[in-house]
């Protein structure tokens, strides 16, 4: 089976700063791929390449090819909105909209012009159930999403993503604002979601990468140093720099 995402020869510049250097990467379907590496290594930047969130940065320039489901997303004429519905993103800090819980989940449907109450109700319930949040919020769908505890806010962000039925879910350090118990819940949820979605996660936390990911990629200073099955990368890294990092001797 062809990989869900294929990146080859990717270079990215912020103005004169060369942030990603000749990066190549293949992300397999229905697996969790973890991008690890020290701060500033470009892993978040790489993640944001995949749904073109870097378009928001004025001085950002990209060369190379990024294929998502076989289509080059940086070829001219690509519909960025359609891409972002296929490749969803969960952010570092939970960012539910200042709307009700229901309207947060319904957001993606309304963006597509679906306003029929029955369809909305159904999608809201299904998505909240899939994100393991239904039992917590089924009686408070009309309350502001900002009143939820942080970990529920983060699962709400997952739920509103699931409502648009993406193929790929990008997660940018989704647990860094959460305590260990809440982190555990999100990790369990990710393992559950792996059955239906391709997941790419950026994490600072090497235990997290080793707990949940199938494939890991180690990045350093904008370069892809090593990539392979997580078990192998953590037990028998091929590159000396990877070994230094995972054993805590980095820097």
């Amino acid at each position: 089976m062809k990989p869900a995402i294929e990146i080859s020869g990717l270079n990215l510049f912020y103005g004169l700063f060369h942030a990603l250097k000749d990066v190549s990467l293949a992300v397999e379907r229905r697996k969790i791929t973890a991008l690890i590496g020290p701060s500033g290594c470009g892993k978040s930047t790489l993640l944001r390449v995949l749904n073109r969130m870097n378009d928001l940065i004025p001085e950002c320039r990209i060369t190379g090819s990024v294929l998502v489901e076989g289509r080059d997303i940086y070829a001219g004429g690509e519909d960025v909105c359609a891409l972002r519905k296929k490749v969803g993103m969960v952010f570092q800090r939970p960012n539910p909209f200042p709307l009700t819980v229901r309207e947060n989940v319904a957001f993606g449907l309304r963006v597509e012009g679906i306003n029929e109450p029955g369809a909305i109700e159904q999608a809201v319930e299904e998505s909240l159930k899939a994100a393991w949040l239904w039992e917590n919020v089924k009686d408070s769908l009309d309350r502001s999403a900002l009143e939820l505890p942080l970990d529920q806010q983060q699962r709400l962000c997952v739920a509103r993503l699931l409502a648009v039925e993406p193929d790929v879910i990008l997660m940018d350090e989704p647990c860094s604002a959460l305590d260990p118990i809440a982190t555990g819940k999100i990790e369990d949820l990710m393992i559950e979601l792996r059955a239906r979605y391709t997941i790419v996660i950026v994490t600072h936390n090497m235990q997290q990468a080793s707990r949940i990911s199938d494939v890991s990629a180690y990045m350093l200073l904008g370069e892809m140093i090593e990539m392979g099955p997580t078990l192998q990368l953590f037990s028998k890294p091929r590159d000396r720099r990877t070994e230094d990092y995972i054993t805590g001797r980095y820097g």
């Binding site: 969130m53 969803g88 952010f91 960012n95 909209f97 962000c157 509103r160 648009v164």
Partner: peptide
Amino acid sequence: EGALALGAT
């Protein structure tokens, strides 16, 4: 970012 990432214009 949240809105744009969900495919909103």
